[in-house]
Design a protein around this nucleic acid. Sequence first.
DNA 1: TAAGCGCATATTGTATACGATCCTACGCGA
DNA 2: TCGCGTAGGATCGTATACAATATGCGCTTA
Lengths: 232, 232
Amino acid sequence: MGTLTKDIALNSASSADEIVVRLTEAVHEHRILPGMKLNEDEVGEVFGVSRTVVRQALRSMSHGGLVAIERNRGAFVAKPSIKEAREVFEARALLEPQTARAAAERATAADVAILERHIKEEHAALAADEAGRALNLSGLFHVEIARIADQQTIEAFIRQLVSRSSLVIALYWRRRSALCESHAHHALLDTFRRNDPDKAEDIMKGHLIDLVSQLDLRDLPEETTSLRDALS
Amino acid sequence: MGTLTKDIALNSASSADEIVVRLTEAVHEHRILPGMKLNEDEVGEVFGVSRTVVRQALRSMSHGGLVAIERNRGAFVAKPSIKEAREVFEARALLEPQTARAAAERATAADVAILERHIKEEHAALAADEAGRALNLSGLFHVEIARIADQQTIEAFIRQLVSRSSLVIALYWRRRSALCESHAHHALLDTFRRNDPDKAEDIMKGHLIDLVSQLDLRDLPEETTSLRDALS
DNA sequence: TAAGCGCATATTGTATACGATCCTACGCGA
DNA sequence: TCGCGTAGGATCGTATACAATATGCGCTTA
């Protein structure tokens, strides 16, 4: 009941979108890990639909970078390379500070209340030892900021980048269990309460840098490049 | 032969992707206009494939914002609202100047040569009175910059934003025929030759502002908001 | 004549069937 | 025993068939 799950209801999402939402959530919560095969028949059986619909869903997710589709081989949860991981956070560094600034200018009491609930739920999830759910909520916090900034286009980008960040964290997070309990979200919330755009921008910039610094992005564990690439 | 058409060849794109490319190009060249219905049977007949493949293609394009799909009603070329038009250029303003800077730092002689060919082809298209093709090439110039910056993630975003910009231009461009012959692209090219990041960033920022200033984004012609929205 | 209702048609949504491709495991020969 | 080739199964790609929904036209009626 208290969950922040958005059931859109109006405009009746197609069943494919339903599957996208469910699968995406599972990936965000690290219940489905990078590299895992997403068999069409299997997914279809779980959700009680035909492969037609499953394929729609998987193709959708492939556009968000959450799923990689290899022709005649099927769909896999994406495994971002280190380069891609860096790119994701570089893109976020371009988009989010400015967006946080705009959100701080526009934030109303209602917006602040929503963000407060987000943080509260995140803490509750951590307390309940549901690290995956906490991580998901932590990402939604960033998406919510774009919504407050009233920038749907940027919101869509950030949503995608947060998704991929979740994969990056699954692959490259340093400390196995310790989660980003960083008080950055609290600090951001405070700037929204005070409508302090300058500070909001600063904090967001720093927050993203902090996140990257907790990743292990040394080049060593990079997958061996494919033969095809090596010979071309 | 001289065309810059990228045929990817390796990893054999599926036939759905082929249709996406062809349709996207048609939209970019304003041979298919915003609001036009994209009938599945019709498209399938043109490309000689079944509706299955067409539907894949249309759903792909809907993720890029080029096509709007309404349940049980079909696919239409998107008609960006004025708000969306503003958002597109605000997003570009966040992404592209910094990307141009990075590109200016990295640009090699080969990169410069490619951009030169781009500009040359664009002029040729204008001379041949193919305004649509010129517009398309002008957009690809921006995408190419992201490639030079070696930022695939941002490149994908810019590609999408350029697409939607093409729709915005079709809807809101002031001067009917006069095309952005602005010398901004030449100036950018020059900063790449000289590897001058600061200037590249500045010029790109100004170029985007120029583009927006040539649009007619007054709120008046806004579509009447849907009944559903009005009542919710 | 205009408004309202209902059916007929066109179009989309989903499931199923069939063909193509890839992966694996087994057998054969050196 | 190792390597290669091939056959089988599993899985994906595409086409087709059927069901659900929306749209437009004509008929009826006041």
